[in-house]
Every structure is written in structure tokens, then in C-alpha cells.
Amino acid sequence: MPKLESIAAKASRYLTTVFVILLLNFLIPRLAPGDPILYLLGEDVYDVSPEIIEELRAEYGLDKPLYTQFALYLLRLLNGDFGYSFSFGKPILEILSVRVPLTLLLTVPSTLIGILLGVYLGAIAGWRSHKFSRKVLSGTMIAVYSIPPYWFAMILLLIFSLHLKLFPIGGAPSFDADLFDFLSHMFLPTLTITVFTAAYNTLIMRGIILGVSNEPFIITALSKGLRKTAFLNRHLLRPSLPALLAITAIEFGFTFSGALLVEIAFSWPGMGLMLWEAVLARDYPLIQAIFTISSLIVVSANLLADMLCMVVDPRLRSSHAQP
């Protein structure tokens, strides 16, 4: 049963990856200079005795050896408990219950639209790329992708919010907002992420199409005189699917971790912003939680993509294609 073996091998590889990720998520924040206790004391408090700092460290369990802290962290995680945020003064699950929906609200539609648009435009730009119009399309996408997202967001705000007064300047919609209010808050941040996701995917897809367009089967398909749509779908896009799925999986994995610069520009309290704030506060449990969830989603999405690849690409199902 090569298929089952293949899945088992992949699963064990992914489990190892998850453990390494958990370990790194635990260690990296603690290796960074800075102390969450100093954050808790606030901006005007500088001269704090080491006794007070130690007392507080003990209160938050930071006085224990690292391996004990790590073991406790794993135990809690197995129970579905991400711990307690120093800087929010709240259980992390409670914080996530607000931030995750806001993040997904912003990133899922924009990523989805961006990928679909990018695949379509990328296919156009990659096929017969020597044409002038395709070169213009590729050049435009490179130019768009080179723009700093924060600057782009500010330009949108300047034009559509400040001068045309069409959209609000900042903040996510309230959970009980009406549909119009909801959409008006979402429009500009969603547009920003969509534009960059589409530009990125266009360039990636263009590269993939360029890679397969000189394959002998493409020339055979062309010589059969297939209609354009049938040719694109069956012969050009299908061989590109494995690579595309891998990239899409990673992108969807990152939808959870938010879009920091766009969230800052639009004052959108998503996961990206929360991670940034958590890092600035050296809020170890919160940093761990965000990284862990993001990593798990990326890993799961990759696992799913691997399996889907085997479905869409018969070559990967053969025993010779074992990892």
C-alpha cells in the first residue's frame, strides 16, 4: 500500500515539524532581549528593585527553569489551553475569540479573490509571454508588487476616505454593524490585500506557465487544434496545479497570522497587529499562541496540499515518488 505508507511518512515528517515549531516558538521569544515584567510596570517606572522583579517573575511562572516552562506549555497545549496573556490580562482563548474572526474576515476573502485573480492573470501573462500586452501585464504586476503595502494603503485612505469621503478611515466594523457599515469598513483593507495577493500570484503563476509551456505535451495539445479554454484548463493549468496548490496552502496558512502593515494602516485589530503588540510587550504566552496556531495551520494546509497533489497528479502516486 504505497499510498498509505506515503501518507504515514508525510504525517511523521509533519509531526516532527510541529514539535520543532513548538520548541522554536517557545525559545525564540525568550532569547530576545527584553522582559515582560518591565512592560507590566509601565513607561514611568524605571528604578525597580531586583526583588520586585523576581517576585513578579515568580507570579507569572517565569522563574522556573526553561525546560519546566516548556513542559508546562506542552501540557497546557494538549488540553487546548494557550495560557494567559500578560499584556491583555486575559486568557488567550478569550482574546483570540475576538481577534481571529476579525482577521479571517479581512484575510480570507482578499486571499481567495487575490489567488483566483492571480491565477487567471498569471495564466494569461505566462502563455505567449512575448506579446506586448502580456509584457505590460507582467510589468504592471511587478510594479504593483514592489509598492510598499503601507504606502499603498495610505494613498487609498487619502483618496477614498479623506478627499472623497467614501469609506471610514480606520477600525474594523462592530459585530452588530449593518451590512453597509460592515462592507464600507472592509472595502479598502480588503482591496489592499487583494491587490498584493493578486500581483504576487500573477507573477508566480506566470512563472509556472512559462515552465510548462515548452513541454512536448503542450505542443502536442496545440497541434490537435484544441479550443483555447479546453487547452488552458486541461493542458496548461492542470500540470501547474501541484505547484499552485503548495503556494496556495502556504498563503492560506498565513491568512490567520494577518497582514501587519495593512492592519496598522487601517487600524484593524487583527492577528498581525496583535502579534506585533505581543512582541513589543514580550508577552511570551501570546507570542507562542499566535505562532503555534499559525504554524499548525500552515503545516495542516501543506499536508492537505500534499494529499491533493497526489490526487491531481498521478505521477506523485507512484512508489517512485516517495519522499
Binding site: 513607561e43 503601507y150 495610505m154 485612505l157 487619502l158 476616505s161 479623506l162 469621503k165 471610514p168 478611515i169 480606520g170 477600525g171 492592519e263 496598522i264 494602516a265 487601517f266 487600524s267 484593524w268 497587529l273
Partner: peptide
């Protein structure tokens, strides 16, 4: 209090009349 994550956006909000004044400790 309306929270902004960027000063640029806050200044635009001030110019547009979404807020009346701005404040930051110290």
C-alpha cells in the same frame, strides 16, 4: 477615545472631522 494604529490615519481622521482632537500620553 478612538484608537488608531498609525499617526497618518489619525491625522486624516482629524482633518475629515471624525475626531475632535488628538491625545497621547507625554
Amino acid at each position: 477615545f478612538k484608537l488608531y494604529k498609525s499617526t497618518e490615519a489619525m491625522i486624516m481622521a482629524l482633518k475629515r472631522g471624525d475626531i475632535d482632537t488628538v491625545y497621547h500620553y507625554a
